[in-house]
Structures are given as C-alpha cells and as structure tokens.
Design a protein around this nucleic acid. Structure first.
Lengths: 352, 352
DNA sequence: TCATAAAATGAAAAGGTTTGCAACAAACGC
DNA sequence: GCGTTTGTTGCAAACCTTTTCATTTTATGA
C-alpha cells in the first residue's frame, strides 16, 4: 500500500543536510539559517513528506491521542458530549479514540489494559457502566489506569477516586421538576425510570424521592429496566394498570427524553391527552424534544459544555496543580407544553 | 504521571532471559519451552507489564487504528454507522479514531495530512462534504491518501476514485416513495430538500425528479439549505405560501427524518392534519420516527449494516484482490401512518 | 586581525518493541 | 556414537523520529 515510505533520512540526504536539521525545519525551530530552511522546505514539498507521528510519539512519550469512554454513541446525550470533546481536542492537535463500554458492564482490567497499551494521553469517562454494584473494585481498577494517564470524569463523582470531575447536578434538576409539578397542583406524581444501572439514573431517582419526601407526597415508582422508547411505551400501560382509579398519577417524571418519547406514544394509544389529563416531563433536552406533540418539558444537562470543559481539563491535566476537583453545574428546567404549565396559565388567566 | 514506565528489557532482566524471549511469550509464539514461558509469565504478571503498542506499531508499520470521517456524530444516521463500525473494528483488535469534516467543507490537503501522519491502517469515508462543487479535485486528494492507506466509502460512489464502495441506493429508494404516493392518488407532490451540499442529498432529489418525470407529474421543489428540524418547520410555511390554493401539494417528500420532524410540527402549527390533509414521508428511519405523531413513513438505509460491512471490507482490504468494487444495497420503504396508506386502506375498505 | 560570543549544524543516542539470523541444545535415526 | 533434524534462545538490526551535546561556522567587538 504505502510504497511512499519516505523517511526523514531520505529528505536529509537529498537536501544535503542531516536529519536533525530537517527535523528542526519541520518543527519551526528558530535556529535554522533561512537559506537552509528554504533548501530543506523545497525537498519536503517536492516529495510531500510527512513525518511519522508514531515514531515521534515513541520518542516524546505522548501519542497526542485522547480516549473517550461511553456506553452508546447512538444516544444523543453521549453523541453531544463526544462531539464537543472531539472538537476541543482537535483544536489542540489531539485526536480522539472511541471506546465503548456497554451500559450494564463494568470496567475490567482487560479494558484498562487496552488503554494503557495504547499509551493514550488521557481519558474522558462519561458514565454508563458505573453502577453501584460494580463500584466496589472500580476505584482500584481506575487507580491503576491513573498511574499511566490522567482521568477526567463527566458523570456523578465516583467515590474513592480522586480526579477531575465535571458534571451536571441531576439530582437538584429533578427536584426542580418535581417542585414545578407540585406548584402546578399535582399531588400524585410518578417516576418512570431504569434500575440503578448507571449512576446518573440513580441520581435522578434520588432527586425525585428526596423532593417528594420534602413535599410530604407519596412517591409512585416504576423502576425497571427501561431505557428505550419502546420500553417507555409499554411501561405506561403497566403503571396505570397497577396504579389505577383515584390512585392514578396525574404527572409523570420520565428518566430521559428517549423514554419519554415512548411514554407519549403510549399515552396517545391509551387515549390519554397530554398535558390535559397527564403531565409529562422528561430529562436531557434532546434535539427532538422540542418537536414532540406536545413539545416536551425537560431538563437541560448541557452535554456539549461537559464535553468541552472535560476535554479542556484533560489537556491541562499535566500542568495543572489542581489534580483533583469536582465541579457541579446547575441543570436548567426547560418548560414547554407537556407539563401543562402554559395550559395552567391559560386557566388562571380565564379564572381571573 | 506514568512512573510505571517498565520496558520489556526490565522484564527480561528480572526473568533472566532476553527481550526476544519475553516478546515471544507475550505474542504466544509456539517455540517457547513451557518452563521458560511460566517463568517469564510470572514476572510479567508480577509487574503487570503491558507492552507499548506505539513501539510495536512503529516496527510493524501498522497502528491497528482505523479512521472514520463523517460530518456530524450527533446526526443519528452517522452515529449508527459509527457505532457499528467501532464494534466491528474492536472485535478485530482495532480502534477507531473520529475525524469530523463539516457538511459544507471539502477534504483539504491538510486534512489528509493528519491522517497520513497518524499512519492509520485504513479510512472509512461516510459522506457529507463530498459535494459536486468540491469534487473537482477531490479524487486527486484522495488518490494521494490512497497511496498510504486503503479507503472504503459508504456513500454514493465518487467518480474518479477507485476504491471499495458500499452504499444504500437512495435514488431508487426515493423513487419507491414517489411511486407509493402516486399509487395512493397523490398528483401534486413536493420535495423539501437541502441544496446539493452532500452527494446523498443530491441522490434523493434526483430520485424524486426521475420518478416524477416518469409518472408525468410536475415536480414541486423547495430546495434550500434545510437540514435541521427548525429549518423544516419554517420551510412548510414558505412552501405553502408559494404554492397555495389548488397548486398546493397534497404530499411532501422530505429529505430526511430530522427535517421531517420539523415539518410535522410546522404543519401542526398551521392546523394542517397529517395524513388526512397532507401526506408526509421522510428518509432515514431514525429511532424517533416510529414515535412521531403520526408515526413517520420513511426509508430505511441500514446505516449499521453499512458501518459493519464497510469496516469489514477495510480490515480485509490488504489481502483482498478486489481492491475496488461497488456494492449498492436496496433501501426499504417503511410504511407507517404519515403517508396515509392505512387511512387510504380504511377508506377503500369502507367504499367496498 | 584576532579573541570571543553566538548561531547553525551534525553525530549519535534514545525511545521500546519485533524478528531474521546465528548459535546452541536436545532429540532422532541409523 | 555420530550426523541430522527439530526445538529454544539470544544478539543485534530495524522501525523513524527528536534532542542533547559537541563541533563548526558566522557574527561581534576591540
């Protein structure tokens, strides 16, 4: 394939200089005589020579490569994180490698070994996998990785692991949602969520339960393995079968917008109108949430900001003395129509 | 950071053998005496030694890394391609690096140089950027890249470039859609699409125009820079302002599901019911298309299959004698409710 | 013009692995 | 017991750069 395997020595020979000089020309070293520079440059251009970054990486002990670990790139949330991370990395001359770690699997030694062997310059950990049941030996595994490269996590902090951590405070976000619903008059509010497979999912549920408790309301929980629209669609029927009649909720807090998409369809099929008969709130503020019918009230988690800041932190992890810090960002409530706030406002106005 | 910079020599010394033997142990070479194997293995395990893949890559002249180039990882279509590609690559011990090339930019020499310097083992090109106006020198640029690494494209074939090409035949897909709509009785059919910024978009429009011509129908075109839901939403109003009254279309073929999402909302705001007053068809069969209201009729392009096959082809590109072939896959029409087929069927039934 | 300082260049080592070749040991056939 | 084959191991080169240090060239000042 690459018959074109020119080395710096070939260039040096042709230009009548040493390889050191060629290297200096390529890296814009100041101490090169202008005429030498031109002479070498001409040969480099003539053959379109490109230095082998593998060889350079070996010598300089850095690969100019970042790893990014997340459970599913098809999930719009992670895609946003990834996109922003790549952009930031690229603008600093770094390249990102994608490592997938499924939702319900934990970080194994083998997984870590791949990263170590590749001699990455840093790793961005974006949640998923970090389930409490796995978390027992998780800090140990990550400590080993940390001896080789800096780690930045952009998910709820992992206890026992000291590293830079940037995340959006989901728990308080969900609490805002619950408070908002209660202010709209809802008393029977249900949470449709996944089992604690990921930390961020756990945070959502915690936020829900905390706020319900504080408001003195009895929480209704449907916590199963629900993480696709299809699962959301069927979950509604189950929920209303269990909690029917006057026990039926009037508002649903759904673990994320993806699932909420299915929930909306499920309600539609049951002939339950949103928001008139049932308020629905999602979480994530995906690109499609503005376009559902009705548009979905949700929580914005600023994934792109996390990706950007996380990558930036990773790139500065070496020269930074703050080798470990947590930065929690506020989430913002995006009020659209599915929660009935606008409806309610109309009613209020007409009642005056 | 990596105080842990053990080399193969350290291991060799401690085990009392040469580095060659350690290397053979690590790569499971057959000609190693069992007791030597054990002895070395013990030291390797003791220090948890991991060979430096950068050094290995330098010597073996392969990085075990694939590049994948696409315009936007947040776009669900590309995310699907990427996801499948990564999975396939990973299962063969390869890692994928993501390179973004914006929709309306072309592949420059600088861009190519990055790939060459990284000494990737292959590159998967997933469209976007390959706009006709850029295409003049595109084959040249790619030819240069091809001297260094195999290229597989999973977008409509690029004229002037011989390489493995796997794609879904969009043109015939859109023709199927138009035929379907005409069979449902529609005569005034409009295409809402983007300017020819990407080849695949161009293919869609061509398919539309070809089939309309064949059916003897006058095509209605709204071709602007439309590629987001928001743009779709506003486009409807413009279309109906231009083509109003009895000139108004009764069916819309939308360039992709993302835009169709906005189109549906735009129609809703105008009080036009889908599919009763307006049939709508998208393209891409995204995960959300099943959950719109009404569920969107669309074309499935099997992006995961493309990602899988493309990567597989790339990995076999060296030993394959078929250095160049085109493989066009059939797209499949997914009939849901937004085109009115089910509605029509009901009408037919009641008419009998 | 000469001593000295500064700038430009080259030689060679280093980075960590794999692998061809040679050397050596062991097993085998006769 | 000896020549031959097979199986193990080590040496050293190779992969392609960058960078230190020493050396040569050029500029500076008296």
């Amino acid at each position: 394939m690459s018959a074109e395997s020119l080395t710096i020595l070939d260039i040096a020979r042709e230009a009548g200089v040493s390889s050191a000089t060629v290297s200096r020309v390529l890296s814009q070293h100041p101490n090169v005589r202008p005429d030498t520079f031109q002479k070498v440059k001409a040969v480099v251009d003539k053959y379109n020579y490109k230095p082998n970054s593998i060889a350079r990486g070996l010598l300089q002990r850095q690969s100019h490569t970042l790893g990014i670990i997340l459970p599913d790139i098809k999930h719009p949330y992670y895609a946003s994180v990834f996109s922003a991370a790549q952009r930031e990395a690229m603008s600093s001359g770094y390249v990102v490698q994608f490592y997938r770690l499924a939702y319900n699997s934990t970080i194994t030694d083998d997984f870590i070994n791949q990263l170590i062997e590749r001699r990455l310059d840093g790793v961005l950990l974006c949640g998923g996998f970090i389930e409490p049941t796995c978390a027992n030996d998780l800090p140990d595994v990550l400590h080993r990785l940390q001896r080789y490269m800096p780690i930045v996590t952009i998910c709820p902090p992992i206890t026992g692991l000291r590293c830079i951590n940037i995340y959006t405070d989901l728990r308080s976000g969900v609490r805002k949602v619950v408070r908002h619903l209660s202010q709209l008059g809802h008393r029977r509010i249900a949470f449709i969520g996944a089992t604690h497979e990921t930390r961020s999912v756990g945070e959502r549920q915690l936020g829900f339960e905390e706020e319900m408790a504080q408001l003195g309301l009895e929480p209704i929980l449907l916590v199963e393995n629900i993480h696709t629209p299809a699962m959301g669609e069927t979950s509604v029927r189950r929920l209303l079968a269990e909690e029917g009649g006057d026990r039926a909720p009037t508002a649903l807090v759904v673990v994320n917008d993806l699932v909420a998409l299915g929930v909306l369809k499920g309600l539609r099929k049951l002939g339950i109108s949103v928001p008139e008969e049932m308020a629905v709130v999602g979480c994530d503020n995906q690109f499609f949430s503005e376009y559902t019918n009705p548009p979905l009230t949700t929580i914005d988690l600023a994934p792109e900001e996390l990706g950007l800041l996380g990558t930036r932190a990773l790139l500065h992890a070496h020269d930074s003395n703050a080798a470990s810090f947590n930065q929690a960002r506020e989430s913002t409530l995006i009020i659209r129509e599915s929660c009935g706030a606008y409806l309610r406002r109309k009613i209020d106005v007409s009642a005056e």
